[in-house]
């Protein structure tokens, strides 16, 4: 086995992998007892990282969970495929959940867990999310669904390089240009690949915009000035977003605070400016 494959055990254990890497690594897990054991141990270790944080959910959530539970069918301990869940709220197991095939729980035993659940059509929500994330992968996902029976078999080789998302392709491009700027309490990074004609904005701790405002991305296009490259979703402070538009002809990029619906032209001074020169 390629030693590089084992090296993904840590990232896999903390879900720091793309869906494609996940599938590829789960194929490896099926064959590598060492990695199965390591993933289980590293997950247990990772679970302690947030041990200092306890936050009781609001009391109403308890009633909501228990009410949903009363309407949700549990999986058979042994069946390899699952009937559609009764409750619409039910979602598929993360691959961290037990492998249906083995009737065992350890997340690691689940090389087939995620693909089985995810592909069995039960997890429509997750499937939709994946599709929205990478429309061009929809065909591949659909293909995986069709191949699923009692056991999962995926149509790519274990050692085949995982397919990359559009974002990953830019981040890993040979000609990737990396520009970083301090913002808030940490740094934000813009990675641009002229050959892919795309740029990706990555931030770990984006400051919250003021109420009613959102961050808007701009390309500086010769002859046109600042052209909108989309809004930055600020659901969490960790952000990875692909800029809209041709990054190869732009000479720079910027970020401004705009009304939540976005602006046609920047209406405030930039909070960040990147020069591609």
């Amino acid at each position: 086995m390629n030693p590089d494959t084992h090296a993904l055990a840590g990232a896999y254990a903390v879900n720091a992998v793309t869906e494609e890497e996940r599938r590829s690594f789960e194929l490896h897990l099926g064959q590598c007892a060492d990695c199965r054991a390591e993933v289980a141990e590293l997950r247990a270790a990772a679970a302690t990282i947030a041990a200092d944080v306890e936050l009781p959910p609001p009391p109403a959530l308890r009633a909501s969970v228990l009410s949903a539970v009363a309407q949700t069918r549990q999986l058979s301990p042994l069946e390899e495929t699952e009937a559609p869940a009764a409750a619409p709220a039910a979602t598929p197991a993360p691959d961290g959940a037990p492998s249906p095939a083995e009737g065992s729980p350890a997340p690691v035993d689940a090389p087939v867990g995620a693909p089985l659940d995810g592909s069995a059509g039960v997890d429509e929500l997750a499937a939709r999310r994946r599709n929205r994330l990478r429309p061009w992968l929809a065909a591949a996902v659909a293909a995986a669904v069709l191949t699923v029976g009692g056991l999962v078999w995926q149509p790519w080789r274990d050692d085949a390089p995982p397919q990359l998302t559009a974002t990953e392709q830019v981040l890993q491009a040979d000609d990737a240009q990396r520009l970083e700027l301090p913002m808030g309490t940490s740094e934000v990074v813009l990675v641009r690949s002229p050959s892919h004609k795309q740029a990706v904005f990555v931030a770990d701790a984006m400051p919250s915009p003021p109420s009613g405002k959102a961050y808007q991305l701009w390309f500086d296009v010769p002859g046109q000035g600042m052209v909108s490259a989309g809004m930055i979703p600020t659901t969490g402070s960790a952000v990875t977003v692909m800029l809209e538009g041709d990054a190869s002809t732009a000479t720079g990029a910027g970020i401004t605070l705009e009304p939540e619906s976005g602006s046609e032209h920047p209406t405030s001074a930039p909070v960040a400016l990147f020069s591609f020169a």
């Binding site: 709220a89 197991a93 959940a97 065992s104 729980p105």
Partner: peptide, 19 residues
């Protein structure tokens, strides 16, 4: 909530000897 529902659905397959 999603997490607890998943835990409910999958606890049939939890094996305490494994973790």
């Amino acid at each position: 909530q999603e997490a607890f529902l998943d835990i409910w659905r999958h606890c049939t397959r939890f094996d305490s000897s494994k973790g």
